[in-house]
């Protein structure tokens, strides 16, 4: 069953200049599945996550499209109605969450507050639950007595995960949950998250700039660039049969400890300015395959069932795939 459906979503931040951070992104998420959203910083990943969560900053507004959660259109619900869904049915682990714990309260009080905000339970019950949650995320339950500064970064991030699980949500949105952590702790935390998902059966949106994390933890993925969707589909399909130059560029820029060592390509240039409207392909200024038609609106094509690509493909995609593995392809672009 489809749990979350996002259709042609647009999000704009008011200001001078106004920034249109999400520009027509669509995807669906099935129950029990994990969807990865990847792209470089500033491409609108966090904005998209916050829009789904109903937690946009005050100057952010959904300016088009719809978000359907469990059959209900939640795009334009009032704040109060959103609050009911938020945390009860969907929760978020945000980018810098581990620094957002309040330094003057003990962990147990912060978890208790998160529970009592929504559920009418006694202090004792909430306390029991907080110890349970700590165990669930692999922390010693006695550490609920600690203040945040007594915990390491990895431990604090686990506390945040515990809080996001407090009310058994159907959907967890994790925005770069491990970006600031070392690989050992990252593995521990991602493994925990996946284990819990298997046990509890919830769905997840995993926002990250690390395609390896997507490969290891997600079922399907969306590649974003400049606020737009570039390519989307099943993770196996995208990794084995990517069509889009940007996806291929990212894949070739990524180091791996697996297989033979190969040279990495880089993608010179910088992302487009999201305060400007854009008719054609947002990647055109960095794309080595860009052709005149790329200045025009880009259609979404579906080469394989469920695999969506937004590219004019001025040259056959086999050629794009072969040439994008060579550094010269990308460097020559820079010279123009």
């Amino acid at each position: 069953m489809t749990l979350l459906e996002v259709n042609d979503l647009h999000v704009t931040y008011a200001g001078d200049p106004a920034v249109e951070a999400v520009r027509g992104v669509s995807f669906t998420l099935e129950e029990g599945e994990t969807l990865g959203i990847v792209g470089e910083s500033g491409c609108g990943k966090t904005t998209l996550a916050q829009a789904v969560m109903g937690a946009l900053p005050d100057n952010g507004e959904i300016t088009g499209g719809e978000i359907i959660f469990d059959g209900q259109d939640i795009t334009h619900l009032s704040n109060r109605q959103r609050r009911e869904i938020r945390w009860e049915r969907m929760s978020m682990i945000s980018q810098s969450a581990m620094n957002s714990l309040d330094p003057v309260y003990r962990v147990k009080d912060q978890i208790r507050e998160a529970i009592q905000e929504h559920r009418d339970v006694s202090d004792a019950e909430a306390y029991e639950r907080s110890r349970e949650l700590m165990e669930l995320v692999g922390l010693d339950p006695d550490r609920v007595e600690d203040y945040p500064h007594q915990l390491s970064g990895g431990m604090r991030q686990r506390v945040i995960i515990a809080m996001s699980l407090a009310l058994d949500p159907d959907l967890i949105i994790a925005d770069e949950p491990t970006t600031a952590l070392d690989v050992i702790i990252q593995e521990q935390i991602l493994y925990r998250i996946k284990e819990l998902q298997r046990e509890l059966g919830n769905s997840m949106v995993m926002v990250t700039h690390d395609i390896s994390v997507v490969a290891e933890t997600c079922d399907s993925m969306v590649v974003m660039y400049g606020g737009e969707l570039m390519e989307a589909g099943n993770v196996d399909e995208i990794f084995n049969n990517a069509h889009h130059p940007y996806t291929l560029g990212l894949q070739n820029a990524f180091p791996s400890v697996e297989g033979e060592k190969r040279d990495l390509t880089s993608i010179p240039g910088s992302p487009p300015d999201l305060s400007e409207p854009l008719e054609g392909c947002p990647f055109a200024s960095r794309c080595p395959f860009a052709a005149p038609e790329c200045e025009e609106k880009v259609p979404v094509r579906e080469p394989v069932d469920g695999h969506r690509v937004r590219c004019h493909e001025p040259v056959p995609f086999e050629q794009i795939r072969d040439r994008s593995g060579e550094d010269e392809t990308w460097l020559s672009q820079n010279k123009v």
Partner: peptide, 14 residues
């Protein structure tokens, strides 16, 4: 612990 960009790899027990 290093994640690899290969979907055949699922995250394994640390």
């Amino acid at each position: 612990a290093v994640p690899v960009p290969n979907p055949e790899h699922n995250i394994s027990e640390p």
